[in-house]
Design a protein around this nucleic acid. Structure first.
Lengths: 345, 345
DNA sequence: TTGTAGGCGTTATCAG
DNA sequence: CTGATAACGCCTACAA
């Protein structure tokens, strides 16, 4: 890269000083003569001196960079999260190294190992759908790598965690649907392994019970690939539609699933909400422009990312080990629209 | 971070060898005894040795990481590009450091300086909307930092460039609109500074001329903030709607503008396409689910990102300086839908 | 107030 | 085939 990159030594030589003096002056140490300091800083300024980060990392064992592991960048939800993470990282002087697991446990593990060797100061992780073995995280934890989980968390690992109130989100969604006359509500969830799937379903089931709604095991379906596999979700929707005891509404429990389900229903000419109500967890900002306008549970993704980054940085920069880790649960918002509207009386 | 991270020295000590021998064995040098090598590698394996990247960077002056500078991660278009970049970077063993300029020239410059000090091997850049002064890039170029521009490029800087065929995209969009009976086509473009704005407009104007369509200076409007400023775009649309000689279609020349314009038109109860045709550059994958289904010019974002990364890596790893830089122009695709449909005969 | 001497982990060079 | 040494750029005792 920089062929000529000026170093502290260069400055020292040019000014007839020692490297340590220059180093101190540059970091504004008070034990340096005002005039010397000024001279040095001016020289550094004009020659555009930048400390070599690799050397700093090596020396300090810190790199001022944090890694983020998510399933997929080109996903609305995660890119909003990253935006939040970046806003804080940037402010605090940390670089952001981004990786995607593509929901593969194996790939996630490789990434994690690679990242941990990169003199990374900390990690923000949203688990891959496939992952069931959390031992890598134990390992990293023991190595002293700071980790913050976001959204898709490993409950058993001792770290800070930032999640949306998935339980309440599911609960409220069912309440809304029921309130609009839907009584036979099917759920389509992401991979069973994921905390978000479990929590959202639990919220829904709680509402089912409280409202005395019909429940049917077959009305809760999982997409192991989270919608990445077109056949999988198409089968699920088709199956639901062809049931003798057919649901009258579908509640999709993840972003990708929501839009994919909408597409499939439309392609099958199912009138929404008349023949099938639809509502979903989604952070698509223009869900109101869809046809029909889609009712959604929306998560504060930016805030979640920013909070995760804040927690991580404070852990990294904390002098003593964190005594007790926090789980932050942020409120979701519900937007009710045409796709789940009540049938006209 | 890793408190115990095992080093080459540790292995050397444990095995009663010298650090250099261990280093060589680990890198599979042929000048090491088969048995010694085996012993070392097994030890490294069991103790989970990972080379310290900071040390490597310092030693080699390379960090196996590339920086990417875009305006906004939480933008559909760019997150798709990043997905492509990541796919290649990952395969080639490079880490991806992501930053966002938020379209601020000042912030872009800071990022660039910061990144260049991070022992970064190369840079993928999509310019901020504000940027008019390209001298930072000259500077970086002279420092020997490999740069590849993507999408929003600086024509005068000598680097590889990857863009969509913006000219053709604009040209074809107008042809389509005209073919469907729209004769008075207004353009809403992103910031004037951006290459993409210029190129797309030029393509449109070419078609205007060839088709003998009415042209009006006031029918070409710019949003300096690219749609980030709600008032700005709202003013533009309102102005277009209230003209005595009012356009019969709007062609939006960027992703954000397209959806924002759709929203504004709908909020004003303008029937699309009857009262106003609408078409836009957009990489939203579900534009067909919108109401009305939106006609779009779609770019091969993933491929563009992947290609940019490929070019960058090959430049980084090339022994001799690049003799001549390439500008790759990738085809766009046009999807025509209801929003630009012909009025019923 | 300034300078000297390691050392962070790795590898390249030069000996043996 | 293996070992010792220096160096990448920076910082931090310890000296002066």
């Amino acid at each position: 890269m920089k062929m000529d990159a000026i170093t502290i030594k260069d400055i020292a030589k040019a000014l007839g000083l020692s490297a340590s003096t220059v180093s101190r002056a540059l970091r504004d140490s008070h034990e340096i003569g005002a005039d010397t300091k000024k001279k040095i800083r001016e020289y550094a300024q004009t020659y555009n001196y930048r400390p070599n980060q690799a050397a700093l990392s090596l020396r300090k064992g810190k790199s001022k960079s944090i890694g983020i592991v998510i399933s997929n960048i080109a996903n609305n939800y995660f890119s909003q999260v990253i935006d939040g993470v970046e806003s804080v990282a940037n402010k605090k002087g940390y670089n952001l190294i981004i990786t995607q697991s593509k929901d593969s446990a194996e790939r996630e593990k490789m990434i994690l190992h690679d990242l941990s060797a990169r003199s990374i100061d900390g990690l923000i992780v949203s688990l891959a759908a496939e992952t069931t073995d959390y031992s890598v995280f134990e390992e990293l934890n023991n190595m002293g790598v700071a980790i913050v989980f976001i959204d898709r968390i490993a409950d058993t690992i001792e770290t800070h965690k930032v999640v949306a109130d998935n339980f309440a989100g599911g609960y409220e969604a069912v309440q809304h649907l029921a309130g609009n006359g839907f009584k036979k509500i099917a759920l389509i969830a992401n991979n069973k392994n994921l905390s978000i799937s479990r929590e959202r379903i639990q919220g829904c089931v709680k509402a089912f019970q409280e409202l005395g709604l019909e429940q049917h095991k077959d009305w809760i379906r999982f997409c192991a690939a989270g919608g990445a596999d077109q056949d999988e979700i198409e089968n699920v929707v088709t199956t639901l539609l062809s049931m003798k005891n057919r649901p009258d509404a579908i509640l999709t429990l993840s972003d990708t699933l929501s839009l994919k389900t909408l597409r499939i229903l439309k392609s099958k000419k199912i009138a929404i909400p008349r023949q099938m109500g639809l509502m979903g967890f989604s952070n698509f900002n223009n869900a109101d422009l869809l046809n029909p306008a889609l009712s959604v549970i929306y998560q504060p993704t930016f805030e979640m990312g920013a909070l995760a980054a804040k927690l991580l940085v404070s852990e990294i920069e904390s002098k003593r080990p964190i005594a007790k880790f926090e789980k932050h649960i942020l409120k979701t918002r519900i937007f009710t629209r045409k796709s789940s509207a009540a049938a006209k009386a």
